[in-house]
Design a binder for these strands. Sequence first.
DNA 1: TGGTAGATATACT
DNA 2: GTATATCTACCAA
Length: 220
Amino acid sequence: MRRTQLAGPVLDVAPLLLGTVLRSTTAEGTVAVRITEVEAYDGPNDPGSHAYRGETPRNAVMFGPPGFLYVYFTYGMHFCMNIGTGPTGTPSAVLLRAGEVIEGVELARHRRGVVPALIGTGGVLPGPVRKRPAANPDRDLARGPARMCVALGIDREHNGVDLLAKDSPVRLLDGPGFDGTPSTGPRVGLREAPDWCWRFWIPNDPTVSPYRPHVPKRRA
DNA sequence: TGGTAGATATACT
DNA sequence: GTATATCTACCAA
């Protein structure tokens, strides 16, 4: 992936990212995922975008040049990551929603609390072994934006990393992406613009996160 | 199998 | 104070 490609319209860029590989290296080791699901966010024109109401300390990376990582913390608990797209000053971005772990599976399992000895039985830490375990825990390692950040070891320290620099701890690798026709649908969990089909995924890929429509929280 | 409580940073009203 | 680009454990049936 070249930076000039990422500078294009976000609805063009988002499907291009499907099938490409994101590799993260920390002191713990290296994990790489093949991106299987993304969502497009079109800055000031998109009421669902963090950049819709202008620049804040949190979303500043989106306003910079394309190819930099925008990491944010949400629900008091989870990190999610975007690839900033569009030219400098255009705060569009692509949310990485899911991927298949293709390198460093052992480390990804460790980070996600999956006990190797219990693979296949669905044993997960912390807490007791689930009574009805998932049939295939590896499928879920990076299935969903927050899980993907855990699997790759991404946190707020990675905000602003250049994904296209050879010496970066997180890199978007060169190589062919998904060759077919992506599936599209509404973005997950958004109250705004629920009818915009700006979510793209690789058809029939088991690592794509299940669709959940926005659920307003009831008052206590 | 499906619904929900709870974790609580950040931005907005 | 309220909402949010979420996930997990727990519980009822």
